[in-house]
Amino acid sequence: LPPSSTMVPPSLPPYFIKGSIIQLADGELKRVEDLKTEDFIQSAEISSELKIDSSTVERIEGSHTSPNFAVVQFSVGEHRTQVSVEVLVEYPFFVFGQGWSSCCPDRTTQLLELPCTKLSVGDVCISLTLKNLR
């Protein structure tokens, strides 16, 4: 097999690297790999501006621009707003009740050491929206 790159791409944020310290809304500090669904829900409840929305994965396909990227189409919130995001295949999303998942979990684990499962159609990811639009 040809050697694969082990560089962390610059567009992959540093806070997904295993061991990164994350501050919850109540001030508690946790490692990124220890975060639970409840941590996000409780933090959003404390937040005055942000709320958690459910984003269901409707489609995953390769990007036309680069093999390192994937296009993930979500159905967001009760209005089922259709949103597509282009991300690196190793970019992790947090799935409700499950944890970190990416299009290519092997690469996520290789690059970030973050325990990760395969993101699949039908998975419900945590996303954020504004609490009130006035």
């Binding site: 540093p14 990164s20 994350i22 996000f40 933090s43 937040s47 929305d53 984003s55 707003t81």
Partner: peptide
């Protein structure tokens, strides 16, 4: 002796994609 290092701390919401604004009814 181990000198204390400053470790970056990231806010929880930076890990969550901000996907779409809530639509008003």
């Amino acid at each position: 002796n181990v000198e204390p290092r400053s470790v970056p701390v990231f806010p929880w919401h930076s890990l969550v994609p901000f996907l779409a604004p809530t639509q008003s009814d």
